[in-house]
Each structure stands twice: as structure tokens, then as C-alpha cells.
Amino acid sequence: MSISIPLSAILFDAYGTLLDLGFITERAEQAFPGHGAQLSALWRDKQLNYTWLRTIAGHYADFATVTADALDYSIERLALTASPQSRDELLAAYWSLPSFPEAAAALTHLRHKGLRLGVLSNGTPAMLEAALRSSGLDGLFDDVLSVDAAGSYKTARAAYQLGPDRLNLPLERILFVSSNGWDICGATWFGYRTFWVNRAGHPPERLGVSPNATGRSLTDLMPLFV
């Protein structure tokens, strides 16, 4: 890993990094048999697209609103019919996501190494509080930061600035961890040291920047802090 001075803190993305979005696919399949994978993929893509479009245009709406709008679009796009109950149950899944199996052990190891741990996520404060509590990870973080405070989504600089502002640390002392290649690029551009949890084995984004290190799970972070 390429760092010039020791790290003092680690900030984690939440969705897909700590919290397993495969749970959304399972719930979508229960609601719409035979369409779960297609619906969940379109929903996630549209959810992210709406965050970027709203940030570019300066029309912020919180992540709960964006998530609901993206679901409604996706259901209509796929010509599915959702009852109010099934729609509400799908949205509620974002508030009760499980963590990835290795997350608790990896975070506990990092805490024992004296690192300050935090979350920096697009989720609303209420969504993050509920999901971290449901996943059992809520007691492992010193800071939980929502982009609500910036009024802009990642990859806006204002969103990433929440980290050093809260931690009161220089950027080179903070490691940013995400499973999303676009998020890693944004954080690297901003100035964080970055670790890409490339769970899906995707190729790197062609945006002229690279993470400082890459692994396939959060477990791969642990050898960096022995």
C-alpha cells in the first residue's frame, strides 16, 4: 500500500461495502418472482443516477426520497405491478440490511489497532442508524457521517469534505474504503488514501486514478494493520 505517513482513521462507505445489497435482490425476488435480479439491478443503477443528477443540477433530495423514486421508476420501467404493501416492504429492506460476514471481525481488528473508524455514506442519518443497528455493526464506529450534512452526494467534494472536518485530521492520515469503483475514484481525486473492496472482481474504472490498495473483502484490510 502506498502511504507516506501512518494512518489514524478509516472511513467506510456503507452500501455494498459494509452492508450487503444482496438482501435487496432477495426481497425483490420474493415480491416479484422471476424478476428480482433485474429489478434490484435497475433500482440500484437508477438510485445512483438520481444522486449524481441531483448533485450536478443542485436539486438535492435525501437518500430515502431518491431510493423511493428510483424504485417507482424501476417498477414501472419493467411493467411490474406493486401493491402498496410490497413497495413499502422493499423500501424497508434498506433500513434492515445485513452486514457482510467478515465485516464485524475486520472492524474489531482495526479498532484494536487503535484506528478511529467511521462511516461516510449517501444514506440519511436515520437509514444508517437503523441499518447499522440491524446489522450489528452500530457499536464499532466512532463517527457516522451522512451526506445530508453537505446537501450533495458523493462524488461531490463537499460530501468527502465531511470526513476531515469531523475527524480533524489531514487527508493523508485517513483511509477511505469502498466497494464502489466510482466512489474510490471520487475519494482519490479528493485526496484520501483509498482501499477498493472489489467484491465482484470488476476491472478498474478508466478515470485516470487508482486506489492505493485493492482486496476482495474487508478481511484484506487486516494485514495492512498488523
Rank of each mutant, 00 (worst) to 15 (best):
S83C: 09
A159M: 09
V226R: 15
D13R: 05
I3N: 12
G186W: 08
P211F: 02
A106G: 08
T51H: 01
T67M: 07
A149Q: 12
E26Q: 13
D165M: 08
N168P: 00
G151Y: 03
R193M: 00
R44Y: 01
A41S: 14
T55H: 04
A213K: 05
D88K: 13
F141A: 08
Y192N: 02
E205I: 10
G215P: 03
L11S: 03
Y192W: 06
G186M: 04
D88R: 13
S179V: 11
V144F: 06
M222P: 00
L91I: 13
M127V: 08
L11D: 04
G114K: 12
S217Y: 05
A41Q: 14
G16P: 10
M1I: 11
I184P: 04
T65F: 07
D88C: 01
T214N: 05
W43G: 06
Y73S: 04
A61K: 15
L120P: 02
H59N: 14
P204I: 07
S99M: 03
G34S: 11
A200T: 12
G163Q: 05
R111I: 11
P6S: 10
I75C: 10
T124I: 05
K154T: 01
S8L: 12
S179F: 08
T25L: 04
V119Q: 07
I56T: 15
L224F: 13
L167S: 04
Y94V: 02
G208P: 03
V209R: 11
A61V: 14
A28K: 05
R133S: 13
N198M: 06
W52A: 00
P6A: 06
K46L: 09
S2D: 15
L145M: 08
P204F: 11
R77P: 00
R173L: 03
P223R: 03
T67S: 15
A131E: 00
S86D: 13
L11G: 03
P170H: 01
F12E: 02
D142A: 13
V144D: 01
E76W: 04
S99T: 04
G181C: 07
F23Y: 14
G139I: 03
G22N: 15
C185K: 06
R44V: 01
L171M: 11
A200Y: 09
L7I: 15
S210P: 00
S99R: 05
S134H: 15
R199Y: 14
T65Y: 06
S179R: 06
S178F: 04
E76H: 14
Q38L: 12
E205P: 10
T194N: 05
T65L: 11
C185G: 03
N122S: 14
D148S: 11
D183I: 00
A64V: 12
G118P: 08
Q85R: 13
E172F: 00
D165A: 15
V144Q: 09
C185N: 12
L175Q: 05
L128Y: 06
L117Y: 01
A105Q: 13
V66H: 01
G151C: 01
T17C: 10
S99V: 01
W52Y: 13
